[in-house]
Simulated scan of single mutants.
Amino acid sequence: MFGECHAHIIMDGVNYRQAIDMHKNGPDDQIIREHLKAYQDRDITFVRDGGDALGVSARAKELAPEYGIDYRTPVFAIHKEGHYGSIVGKSFATMREFHGRVLEAINAGADFIKIMTTGIMDFNAHGAVTGTPLDAAEVKEMVHIAHEEGMAVMSHTNGDYGVQAAVEAGVDSLEHGNYMNEESLNMLAESDTVWVPTLVTVRNLLGDGRYADETLKPIIEFAEENIRKVFKLGVKVAPGSDAGAYRVLHGKGIQDEMKAFTEILEESDIVCHWLSDGESEIKKKFIRR
């Protein structure tokens, strides 16, 4: 069984505000254990978390060995003040403060560093990403600082400018990567960056009613076409579902993600081998040394 290369154990796939509130007085071991059990029940033995601001993923890492799970976490994600990311981490205003956050994460037991360089998809405007992406020079310096401290970098990034800036900066994995054009895809193919597309964060919304299916289908179709392209280009890709996001349940999320890949590419054995190679890259890169 494949591992889960992008999860948020602090969330529950139902209501993220309520899920986060459950941990406001400290990580709730019972909830964490329920989520870890969901992975154990599906023979999932590797989970890479995307971090949170309340120490929940750090606690999950402590408990995970009881469930036979290799759990990796950045402890918290790092975002620039005034930009997207407070939901999963801590902010910085200057590069000196960013370096301080990196050291804080390391001291807290982080396996890697996670940065937020753009917003998220704007469901009200197809092809648009919320907020303003970080400047490419800034992203490059952030990645340089993390690498100088011996840490791999996981980058939450969407849109062409954001993706190209992140890949050029040398991020070790690119999370989401929605709305990439041909140039972005070719840059990925020529890099060592592993892409984790998290397809089911949108696919699992179909028929839910939160967004009209007419809004979701073009997004899904665009993502499917890019998956076909990167498969042919030989881009390094690893499976991660963003488990904990709305309608993406722990344990089941990665099964949904694998189903999406095989439905899109219709070559089950070859696709599994391709994704297995990508997951192996994640395991090799995202470990504290």
Rank of each mutant, 00 (worst) to 15 (best):
T73A: 10
A128L: 04
A93G: 10
M154Q: 15
L103G: 00
A93E: 09
G68A: 11
H126F: 14
M95H: 10
I115R: 10
Y67C: 01
A136K: 15
F98W: 07
T157R: 00
K114S: 09
A105W: 05
A64K: 06
E148G: 00
Y71S: 01
H144G: 03
T118D: 13
S86N: 06
M154E: 14
I78N: 11
E141H: 01
K114Q: 11
G150C: 04
K140W: 00
Y84R: 01
A64C: 10
M95L: 15
P65W: 06
A108L: 15
K80P: 02
Y84G: 00
E149R: 13
N158G: 05
E104M: 13
I87G: 03
E149C: 07
E81S: 14
E104R: 10
N107S: 14
G150E: 07
D122F: 06
A110V: 02
T132K: 15
A136T: 02
N158S: 13
A64T: 11
K114H: 09
H126S: 10
G85H: 05
A152K: 08
H156A: 09
G85V: 04
D160E: 13
I69H: 11
V75Q: 06
G89Y: 05
E148V: 07
A137L: 10
M142I: 05
A108K: 11
Y84F: 15
V143D: 04
I115Q: 11
H144Y: 10
H156C: 07
T73I: 08
N124Q: 13
Y71D: 01
S155I: 01
M116N: 14
T118W: 12
T94S: 14
E81L: 08
A137F: 08
H99A: 14
E97L: 00
D70G: 06
H147A: 06
I69C: 09
K114P: 08
P65H: 11
V88R: 15
A77W: 02
T157H: 02
G100M: 04
